[in-house]
């Protein structure tokens, strides 16, 4: 089964999303900030990364660009999770190297469709 790295600083959202995705049979890795996500991506080699953009220590855009710059991790698809509030987050996410994006609040069915597209 596919291994997904969920990068999310909010504890409730992290818990909720990881449990729901887990229920759909994915193996979930957790990172709580951008810096962690870069390290975990390198060591655990997930099949897909769900990246929140507003993160402490290192934000999602910076983390994504590092992941995409590293030959070891650049092949891993990254789906940005952006807040509805910020229109330009979407463009910024794609510019940083994200393969796709989805908006919060999460529509699980829509998100699952995107995940399966990259890590079927």
């Amino acid at each position: 089964m596919a291994r997904i790295l969920l990068v999310e600083d909010n504890e409730l959202n992290r818990d909720m999303l990881s449990r729901r995705l887990g229920k759909h049979g994915f193996e979930i890795l957790i990172a709580v900030n951008g810096e962690d996500s870069v390290a975990i991506a390198k060591t655990r080699r997930p099949d897909l990364i769900l990246m929140d953009m507003s993160l402490p220590v290192m934000d999602g855009w910076k983390a994504t660009s590092l992941i995409k710059a590293d030959p070891l991790t650049r092949h891993i698809p990254v789906i940005a999770l952006t807040a509805h509030a910020m229109d330009d987050d979407r463009q910024k996410a794609l510019a940083a190297g994200c393969d796709d994006y989805d908006t919060k609040p999460i529509d699980l069915m829509r998100l699952l469709a995107k995940i399966r597209q990259f890590a079927g």
Binding site: N10, L12, N13, R19, R20, H84, A85, K104, P105, L108
Partner: peptide
């Protein structure tokens, strides 16, 4: 305020769906 409200709303929606 909207941003701060949205974060718990996401949780409420997510958990209720779950």
């Amino acid at each position: 305020m909207s941003h701060e409200l949205r974060t718990p709303m996401n949780a409420i929606i997510g958990y209720s769906e779950m």
